[in-house]
Amino acid sequence: MSRLGRFRNLLEAIAACDWHDAEMVMSAVLEEARADAPLMPFGEIDDDAEFWAAMATYEELRAWFLACGRRLAHRDLGRRGKIRLAQLLLADLSDEDRKAALAAARTGSRRRQVTQPKRRQAEGPRR
């Protein structure tokens, strides 16, 4: 059976269940899928990274992002890699925060100079 066929069967099974029962089962399945850290990649590493990021809670994403950022800071990403990373990091900042972040980078200041964003609730079931 194709992936699309399995997907349709799953949707039909969920629709046929009482909502509370479906919610309990889906939450348990998703929680089990989140229980472990990523294993060796089975396919393309970018696809696996996207999968694990989609399954992670906000706290996990934040911790992984900061840990990866510290490791990447000591690697040679090359000019294009550094520009791409900077673009991703600065894209959602307000003009004021972007200017503050760039000024802090120029001066080497580690003092918090940008406004703290409102914390959004993590997507998906909570642990």
Rank of each mutant, 00 (worst) to 15 (best):
residue 37 A to P: 07
residue 110 R to W: 02
residue 113 Q to H: 02
residue 34 R to E: 10
residue 39 L to I: 01
residue 3 R to H: 06
residue 55 M to P: 05
residue 17 C to T: 01
residue 5 G to N: 06
residue 74 H to I: 06
residue 127 R to Q: 15
residue 6 R to E: 12
residue 16 A to Q: 10
residue 82 K to S: 08
residue 86 A to Y: 03
residue 93 L to I: 05
residue 26 M to H: 00
residue 40 M to T: 12
residue 126 R to T: 13
residue 42 F to V: 12
residue 126 R to F: 04
residue 88 L to H: 06
residue 8 R to E: 06
residue 30 L to W: 00
residue 23 E to Q: 11
residue 59 E to Q: 14
residue 106 R to M: 12
residue 102 L to S: 02
residue 85 L to D: 05
residue 114 V to N: 11
residue 34 R to C: 10
residue 111 R to M: 11
residue 83 I to E: 12
residue 120 R to V: 11
residue 56 A to Q: 14
residue 124 G to N: 07
residue 43 G to P: 04
residue 30 L to D: 03
residue 82 K to M: 07
residue 80 R to C: 01
residue 102 L to V: 09
residue 123 E to A: 11
residue 101 A to K: 10
residue 123 E to D: 09
residue 59 E to I: 02
residue 110 R to I: 05
residue 30 L to I: 11
residue 19 W to D: 12
residue 19 W to K: 13
residue 20 H to P: 03
residue 86 A to S: 13
residue 124 G to I: 03
residue 94 S to I: 10
residue 54 A to S: 13
residue 34 R to Q: 15
residue 113 Q to F: 00
residue 34 R to V: 04
residue 46 D to F: 10
residue 26 M to L: 14
residue 25 V to C: 03
residue 18 D to N: 13
residue 109 S to R: 04
residue 91 A to C: 11
residue 67 A to Y: 00
residue 53 A to P: 02
residue 119 R to M: 13
residue 23 E to K: 08
residue 91 A to M: 12
residue 122 A to C: 09
residue 70 R to G: 01
residue 105 A to K: 11
residue 53 A to S: 14
residue 100 A to I: 13
residue 125 P to R: 09
residue 25 V to R: 10
residue 87 Q to I: 09
residue 99 K to E: 15
residue 110 R to C: 06
residue 52 W to T: 05
residue 19 W to G: 07
residue 16 A to C: 03
residue 48 D to T: 12
residue 28 A to E: 15
residue 40 M to H: 10
residue 63 A to Y: 07
residue 1 M to W: 01
residue 34 R to G: 13
residue 75 R to H: 01
residue 71 R to W: 09
residue 11 L to F: 11
residue 120 R to K: 13
residue 23 E to W: 01
residue 30 L to P: 02
residue 90 L to T: 12
residue 77 L to K: 14
residue 27 S to V: 09
residue 7 F to H: 07
residue 10 L to F: 12
residue 84 R to S: 13
residue 77 L to M: 15
residue 97 D to T: 07
residue 69 G to E: 01
residue 67 A to I: 01
residue 35 A to W: 08
residue 108 G to S: 07
residue 56 A to Y: 10
residue 125 P to C: 05
residue 104 A to S: 15
residue 55 M to D: 04
